[in-house]
Design a protein around this nucleic acid. Structure first.
Lengths: 144, 144
DNA sequence: CTCGTTATTGCAACAATTCGCAATAAAGCA
DNA sequence: TGCTTTATTGCGAATTGTTGCAATAACGAG
């Protein structure tokens, strides 16, 4: 049984890339946070531990890790946020009222993906969708 | 019969906001373009017509018009793009291979929205979703 | 363990986006 | 038409995100 960190390290190397201390640090931070964070939040944490790490490196690392799907990026109230990709696909319902984020399983979306493939020959990459809307309490507050 | 521009003007005023020349100009540009554009593209066009308009104004206007749903924002290959909100909801399939954008009707998503409301008490705001994936030609190229 | 290849970093300049604040001007009203 | 209110703009500066390039260091080979 491998830790998540070890699996990620292996994935990076298998793809022919290098596991640098900077990349490890950013993964550690995101792992410890255990929630989504903005680039700036991550950069600040990096700074507090290793002030030598450059801002550009943080941005490049975040983009890199998204490309190889170690991280996923989403948009919550206009800001780009990053988190470690969960091995089991899931989605986020973001309430535009209270900003609360609900995690949602995948089954609703499999149907949709199947439709898109059948009818449009499009292989949708629905791993981590972020859907905005209003949760029940906020809906009640808005109409009340 | 009102023009789209007139409807938008009315909407802005009904909500208690003001219709300024800057806002009109940006709406005119987006309307003439008739496709999505980045903030920079829009700013450049604004400059060529009215060099006095400030860059900050363009950004603020774009955000403002999104908030009142006159515009919709999406992300295409990492860049934020804006376009005038179509009165009939539709969605975009963006191919991560060739970057081609397919416009899609709403019916696949109504079902999904219904599920989310029934089972999660969440009123999903699925007006303009951007779904990434691979189109048929790119899929063939990738596996071939 | 040492060496070579080359992916990755730091740097510094640049581009994009946001913010506070005083000046301006839309919209309603007399 | 002129006055009042206050949403909106322009400006300058700070913050955030990107890019080219030379220096560095990860990792496989010997």
């Amino acid at each position: 049984m491998m830790s998540q960190q070890q699996e990620i390290a292996q994935r990076i190397r298998e793809l022919g890339f290098r596991l640098t201390p900077q990349r490890q640090l950013i993964l550690d931070i995101l792992s410890a946070l255990d929630r989504h964070a903005t680039a700036t939040e991550i950069y600040d944490q990096v700074q507090s531990v290793s002030p030598a790490v450059n801002r550009a490196t943080v941005y490049r690392t975040l983009n890199f890790l998204c490309e190889i799907r170690v991280l996923v990026a989403g948009t919550i109230s206009g800001k780009t946020v990053y988190e470690i990709a969960d091995p089991t696909p899931h989605h986020h319902l973001v309430c535009t009222g209270c900003k609360h984020v609900t995690v949602l399983g995948d089954h609703h979306f499999e149907e949709l993906a199947a439709h898109l493939l059948d009818e449009h020959d499009f292989q949708a990459d629905i791993d981590h969708l972020t859907i905005h809307g209003l949760c029940q309490p906020c809906r009640a507050a808005a109409s009340g």
